[in-house]
Design a binder for these strands. Sequence first.
DNA 1: GTAAAACCTGACATTGACGTCAGGGGCAAG
DNA 2: CTTGCCCCTGACGTCAATGTCAGGTTTTAC
Lengths: 113, 113
Amino acid sequence: MRIGDLTAATGASARSLRYYEEQGLLASERSPGGQRHYPDSAVARVTLIRTLLAAGLSSGTIHDVLPCISEEAIRTPWLAERLRTELARVEDQISSLHRTRDILAGLVEQYAV
Amino acid sequence: MRIGDLTAATGASARSLRYYEEQGLLASERSPGGQRHYPDSAVARVTLIRTLLAAGLSSGTIHDVLPCISEEAIRTPWLAERLRTELARVEDQISSLHRTRDILAGLVEQYAV
DNA sequence: GTAAAACCTGACATTGACGTCAGGGGCAAG
DNA sequence: CTTGCCCCTGACGTCAATGTCAGGTTTTAC
C-alpha cells in the first residue's frame, strides 16, 4: 500500500508517517520512482505507535522499545530496565489521572443536582 | 508568602507561577514595591493546577473549570457540559493508558523470564 | 500522451508550558 | 547605606509532533 492508503487506514497524516519513518519507528520500501510502499502490517504498527504516543511515550522511547515488540530483538538488561521505568511512569500517570477524574466527576455531580 | 516560598512549597518554578497568574489561574496581591504575595491557600491551589495540567487539561480549560472549585461560582449549563466533556476525555485517556500499560507489562514479563 | 491525482524533499511555522537571560528595582541585616 | 538576596518585567529560546507551503517528480486514468 502507498502512503495515502495508510493515512486512510490509520488516520495518521502523511506528514506524521514520514516523521515516524524519520524517527526510525516505521519502515518502508520504495518504488523505482522513490515512492513509499508499505506492507499490510504497517497498519497495526502505526496504530501501536499512536497508542504509545498518546500515552506520552516520546518517539525516542518508542524507538528503543518498539523493535522488541515486532521483531524478536536484543534482550539487554538495559532494555528491561528501560521498560520498567516506562511502565512505572505510565502507572504514575494513571493514578494521577484517576485523581483528576475524581475531581471532575465530583464537580459534574454537583452540577447534576 | 512570597513567590520563593511558594516555589519551595509546591515545586513549581517561579516562571510557572507567574505563567499561571498570567493565564488567570492564580491570584496574588502585591507589596507596595510590586512583589507578589500569596495566601497559604495558594499552595493547595497550585498543587491542584499541576495535577490538572499533568492530566492533560490545558491552562484554558483549567481557567474555565477552576473557579467553580475554589469559589462557589457560576453554575451555567455550559460549564456543566464542559466538565462532562473533559471528564470523558480523561476517561478515554485512562483507557488508552491501560492499554499501554498492558503492552509494557507484557514486555517486562517477557524479559523477566 | 496528457492531465489529474498522488507523491517526493526541504524548510519554515505552530502550539503550550515552560527555561533562561538581561537589565533593573525591593528589602532585611549589618 | 550598602551589600546580598530575592523579586520584577519583557523578550527570546526550547522541545516534540505536526501543519503547511513551495517547487518538482511519479503514477494513474483516459
